[in-house]
């Protein structure tokens, strides 16, 4: 059976491979090459070695500062999203009536795209700030708070779903056993429930980490980096390098490659963390 299937490689894999080559594989290799070149389109590149990488880290590129800002937003968002999401999931797995309704409502923002999300929150935050005669883009701290709020609103529902699935898999006997041994609710949570849902916690930590770190659409819509590019996150910094300036395409491509290395570093850490847990179980 496999033998006759083997001959149909082109039918089964052809279309996907062609599209994948056009959209991803060829552009990735070209991009890697171009990060060492000076160019304005992909056909007029001249080799410049590591120049682009050196220039990418010069202060006037604001690449490092955008990385710092991204790290700050990501750190706070990861902490708050997971804390809230776990708390909500914990409340919703206590056999209350109406759980489904709350789950449906809390998850909904996750479906709204970054652009619409960004303008929605821009309007709300400005509506509050106007009472104090100021606006979202007058100070970087407002942009920072806005991004953290937005990420919380968007991701809590999603993480909550994963935590609920994890909490529902904790065997009831374990909780009962803890109660019999005299553990109070807090002790049960800390020493029984949380260790049992560690796999869900790992997944959620990395999901929130990578989506906050790669945030683009909402950043563009909410502040577009204002004031003075202070609220510009890495992805936006890269896109702006390509499309709002001329003659620095190579620097943009070098930044993009550094960004890729950072993101894959995070993914590698996640892989190791999940592997280790699988061994422990």
């Amino acid at each position: 059976m496999i033998k006759s299937l083997r001959r149909l490689a082109l039918v089964f894999t052809g279309p996907t491979i062609i599209a994948f080559a056009i959209a991803f594989a060829v552009p990735f290799l070209v991009g890697l090459y171009l990060s060492f070149c000076e160019f304005t389109t992909v056909t007029n590149a001249t080799w410049v070695g590591f120049d682009n990488y050196v220039r990418a880290f010069s202060p006037r590129e604001r690449f490092l500062s955008s990385l710092g800002f991204t790290a700050l937003v990501t750190a706070i968002a990861v902490l708050t999203v997971n804390l809230f999401a776990f708390t909500v999931a914990y409340l919703l797995t206590r056999k209350l009536r109406g759980t489904n309704f709350f789950r449906t409502v809390f998850f909904m923002p996750n479906l709204i795209g970054g652009i619409v999300l960004g303008y929605t929150w821009q309007t709300i935050i400005n509506a509050v700030l106007v009472q104090y005669q100021t606006t979202l883009i007058s100070d970087a701290k407002y942009g920072f708070i806005g991004l953290v709020l937005l990420l919380n609103w968007q991701m809590i529902g999603y993480m909550m779903i994963i935590y609920i699935a994890g909490l529902q898999n904790v065997p009831g006997e374990l909780i009962e056993a803890a109660a019999i041994d005299g553990a109070d609710k807090w002790q049960t949570l800390r020493h029984v429930t949380i260790p049992m849902v560690m796999p869900s916690i790992t997944i959620c930590l990395f999901l929130t980490l990578s989506s906050s770190f790669k945030l683009f659409d909402a950043n563009l819509a909410l502040t577009n980096g204002a004031p003075m590019r202070q609220t510009e996150m890495v992805a936006l910094n890269i896109v702006n390098t390509f499309f709002t300036r001329v003659g620095v395409e190579g620097v943009g491509q070098a930044k993009a490659m550094v960004f890729f290395l950072l993101v894959s570093g995070l993914a590698f850490l996640q892989l190791r963390a999940t592997r280790r847990q699988e061994v422990e179980q």
Partner: peptide, 12 residues
């Protein structure tokens, strides 16, 4: 390819 952010391949 799942790991690579869009910005890395965007321009090409």
């Amino acid at each position: 390819s799942m790991v690579v952010p869009f910005q890395a391949v965007m321009f090409p």
